[in-house]
Design a binder for these strands. Sequence first.
RNA 1: GCGGAUAUGUUGGAAUUGGCAGACAAGAUGGACUUAGAAUCCAUUGGAUAACACCGUGCAGGUUCAAAUCCUGUUAUCCGCACCA
Length: 810
Amino acid sequence: MDMKSVEEKWQARWEKAKFNEFDRKDEKKEKLYVLEMFSYPSGAKLHIGHWYNYGPTDSYARFKRMKGYNVFQPMGFDAFGLPAENYAIKTGVHPKDSTEKNIETMERQLKAMGAMFDWSAEVKTCEEDYYKWTQWMFLQLYKKGLAYRKEAPVNWCPSCQTVLANEQVVDNCCERCGSQVVRKNLTQWFFKITAYAEELLQDLDTLDWPEKTKTMQRNWIGKSTGCEIEFDCESGDKIRVFTTRCDTVFGVTYVVLAPEHPLARKLTTPDRAADVEAYIEYASKANEIDRLSTTREKTGVFTGSYCVNPVNGERVPVYLADYVLCSYGTGAVMAVPAHDERDFEFAKKYNLPVRKVIEKKGGETELPFCEDGIVVNSVRFDGLSGEEARAEIATYIGKIGKGGKKVNYRLRDWLVSRQRYWGAPIPVVHCPDCGAVPVPESDLPVRLPYDVEFKPDGKSPLAKHEKFMNAVCPVCGKAAQRDPDTLDTFVCSSWYYLRYADAHNDKAPFDPAAVDRLLPVDTYVGGAEHACMHLLYARFFTKALRDMGYLHFDEPFQRLVHQGVILGPDGNRMSKSKGNVVSPDEYVSAYGSDVFRLYLMFGFSYTEGGPWSDDGIKAIAKFLDRVEKTVLKIHAYGETEHRPFGAEEKALDYARNYAIQRISRDLDAFSFNTAVARLMELLNAVCKYDAKEEKNVSLLKSVAKDFILLIAPCAPHFAEELWEQTGGTGFVFEQPYPEENPAALVLDEAEYAVQVNSRMVCRATIANGLSDDEIRDFVCSIPEIQAKTDGKTVKKCIVVKGRLVNLIVG
RNA sequence: GCGGAUAUGUUGGAAUUGGCAGACAAGAUGGACUUAGAAUCCAUUGGAUAACACCGUGCAGGUUCAAAUCCUGUUAUCCGCACCA
């Protein structure tokens, strides 16, 4: 079969018939929203990862369509982002131009893939009619009190005079110029995702997602129940600390603030100022991952101040140390060196006292002892267990007005400001009198100007664009300045799945009725690397929009599947710098898109991925050749019946029905490699039967017809062509997927493995429907078994129906 | 460092979720057809052995009639860590 012309032929026919567009009028069929994560157009061409995500998932969608669902499978582009801007800095090509060009190429390639995408619902996040509504989303969140401004650090390269993404920081140095990166505070916009922490955690239980992804989100949200405690400083300031171990509060020997803590400088005594400043400077150079490392040498500095432990009135010193992070809890901890490893290490280094307040139950207590035990040296709380002490001490702290029980989350609010050009401008105007004022909805979009200067020189590109920056305050009408920052691209991708439902609406981001018809997404397929970011942000958006009344469901993605990663042939992640990038193009042009797709489905475990190798791709081409030859040969047979329906016919019919059952189950489960294997098995069975002199032609023809239908989702163009050549009318995808006949799957007998004392002895064919005792008696009569059991008594007989008999003798 | 995962023949990978390890392929070997074969078809192919016995799912233990699968410990590799998307 000439794959290229066949592909073009059917793609043209599908397009002409608008066959891939979701049928919005069909109310009878159940809708099924199958969504692949949209593409980021960074490179000009589709890479293997795109193919691997979209090809097999399209086969799933096609299968479901044949199963009677009204399938919606849209595609679009996540078109804003850093790489296009970096490319512009390097080459001078404008991000809009390079992005549009890339999208054009990718659209052409995606269409040539032959996936069932509904292009009438296409979305591109960098277009005005999309980012207008991204800005609208910002305004709604602002109105709801879910967007606010605060100071937050950015990576600053002093030599390039620019903000760097974490990705651009290599070993704490700027990837471009190599100078050391420092943390610098800027006032930036945040979304209050923490307001939904509890619900985001709870609702994970309702989702059909990979368990590991749910676990990652749970850990990311990081709920911990503990106690907040207030330590009064001699200066009159109060230090609030959060602890999960308030049972150790009598063991506090010092208190630690993060170097960025607002009180850090205030509590520093004049004689300590020089050291403290030096330390804050030092800490600003370390990144968070290093700071959290438990093996990293602990560093810190004494502020010169003291505060008071509220439970015993003891005066303890206040230190700064970078093992405490400003972004978690209150940015301050009470240090209990006897019962915390980090505090212990720090105390040893700085000669701070270590006081034991927990004793190991029935054993030597070796410090630091970080498990639960019996409380000691804690006056009236002595003798309590950890759990009891935590409850009672928290209550006591509440009673004396110094804090109390507190639930804390590791999850932080979402920083959405980016000091970049290629993104959706933040729709806010800064007025000298009125402060930060949201742009009225009627003034959206705040257009991203085209003529800007990208070269980094200390200011965001938009900040240098006077025409863009100069605005009028919507409240008082005075001259004001626009916010020069753009939104994190994750904001764009947090709601695109809603826009697909109503992609051309120019009055609203979407019509709630259209969304109700299609959402939530039934099956979402994309990389596991999004587990904690995109997949959490999108859930947050859904819940926030629900609370504003725009949505009527709680979760955007009912079922989630992660495809694995296809690595380079050397086992490393494909990257230009490693020179191990494999392009799908040459394979697609040599073998055709169906063969390439089928190879991706067969050659890897879908959720695992693995190193690329083209070893088996020829075998797939060969397989399709065999299918074509066999099916056409059978089609050409005359209608005469040569053979009645006997045992061999029954075996072929069993093979067909077994294949139908397994393939359906495997496709549902995204187990594509086994589904293809079952197709191969069925072909082998057909060829075996076809090799006979006499055959039952009508059975053979009906199996061949089913074969075309069975393979259709996995090799769509190929199947359409065979369907037509064998006299089928309409599209093969208008046919229902074969259903198995349960009667054909019932066999009269089954082959059992027979074991004696758990050792395999022989196989035996045993009729179905026998009782366990009858099976035992039958097995005991087998000569090989008798030889093993001779002179011994059968103490136990384990029968696993249809599979195995195990005789325990002795 | 923290969090998550993975480990099965020469290779990609199966294994009904505790029940015959290696389905289906690739590769290799041998054969058939052929002037020829990177085509097609057939056979063999976990290790070891003359053959059995036996050994075999990263490594060390454990639970069980039965473990790739469950438990404990351990090693190696991969992914994420909040401004790549």
